[in-house]
């Protein structure tokens, strides 16, 4: 029973750590499926987190914070879009620029506005997203197994957690069962065909990039107004890149993205749990090994040693309409 409880606890913390990865991963999915590489997920999340925490602190409302986070993240997305779609610039370079821009501006503006070394004021009460108790969670808590799963694992998360998990089937449906999704995917595989069908490829790609902005904004808001109570310097700490790794790991598929990010989220929870713990037989596991695992796995997968990850065919190539 104790083992069961601690596993539930581990899974619970895995879920919390998975959420920003999942949102960012789905964000990247829309963009890359439409043919726009995005290594600026990290920067957009960071900017979103900062905007959300700032507005939440000033207005006292987490919802306004979320909207600001999404707004700022969309602006960053549009910069990426203008550079790589309108001016046909290099998408990787643009992504690098976005990451630097976010890292620099958030700390600079944070220090100017709040003078707390780049941190935003501590959030409390309505300025944060707090857990939602699912119906009968308290009553069911004592029921063996089911009670633990229901009231610990499923209940008590904040709204953004449920949004993130709901985004998986929605993304699946939108991408594979709507006309919009078909056109979006075609823009990333064979833009010429989309153009021939009379659909504006660049406009299509802009739509995808904006959705990326929305999801990154939610991920950022989750970090600064739900998981933590405020923004801290560089608080994304590479999560955008892990999400990118997860996207490749998931082979650009929404349902697989869920499992890939759950795996990486679990590894993160495991790494936190194992810090300084002596395991029987093995001794102390170096946490850095577990931290590096998502990256190592991605490299191995990308190299085709376990399966093969092939991205959208027209990814990274600006579309030039024939004259």
């Amino acid at each position: 029973m104790e083992f069961f409880n601690s596993s539930i606890f581990m899974l619970d913390s895995s879920i919390r750590l998975t959420v920003p990865l999942l949102l960012a991963c789905l964000a990247g999915l829309y963009s890359e499926r439409a043919g726009i590489f995005d290594i600026g997920l990290e920067g957009k999340m960071l900017a979103g987190a900062f905007a959300a925490a700032t507005v939440a602190a000033l207005s006292g409302s987490a919802l306004y914070g979320l909207m600001a986070g999404i707004g700022v993240s969309i602006i960053m997305s549009l910069i990426h879009g203008v550079a790589s779609i309108t001016f046909r610039g290099n998408q990787i370079i643009s992504g690098v620029a976005i990451n630097f821009l976010a890292a620099g501006l958030t700390t600079l503006l944070g220090q100017t506005w709040f003078r707390q070394g780049g941190r935003t004021p501590q959030l409390s009460g309505d300025a944060r997203f707090t857990g939602i108790e699912l119906p009968y969670a308290a009553e069911l808590a004592d029921v063996p197994i089911i009670g633990g799963i229901y009231s610990e694992l499923l209940s008590g998360h904040n709204i953004l957690v449920y949004v993130a998990f709901a985004a998986v089937p929605i993304t699946y449906y939108v991408l594979f069962h709507t006309r919009f999704g078909l056109r979006l995917r075609a823009s990333g595989e064979n833009p010429k065909a989309v153009d021939t069908a009379g659909v504006n490829v660049n406009f299509m790609r802009f739509k995808a990039v904006i959705i990326t902005g929305v999801l990154c904004g939610i991920a950022g808001a989750y970090l600064s107004t739900a998981q933590s109570a405020g923004f801290g310097n560089n608080m994304t700490a590479g999560k955008g890149f892990i999400a990118l790794a997860a996207l490749i790991f998931a082979k650009w598929m929404p349902i697989r993205a869920l499992f890939a990010t759950l795996l990486f989220g679990f590894l993160d929870a495991l790494q936190i749990r194992l810090q300084g713990v002596e395991l029987p037989m093995i001794g102390e596991v170096p946490v850095q090994l577990i931290q590096a695992l998502p990256y190592v796995l991605t490299v191995i997968l990308l190299a085709g040693f376990i399966g093969k990850a092939v991205g959208p065919k027209a990814g990274g190539i600006p579309y030039v309409k024939e004259r």
Binding site: F87, I93, N99, A103, G104, L108, G118
Partner: peptide, 25 residues
Amino acid sequence: PAVTREMIVVIQALVILFTGAMEGL
């Protein structure tokens, strides 16, 4: 003191953005 070290990161980002990605501007 208002202009912290991160200003350099911002300038760097803008240089990369304008000389690299928006080269076509």
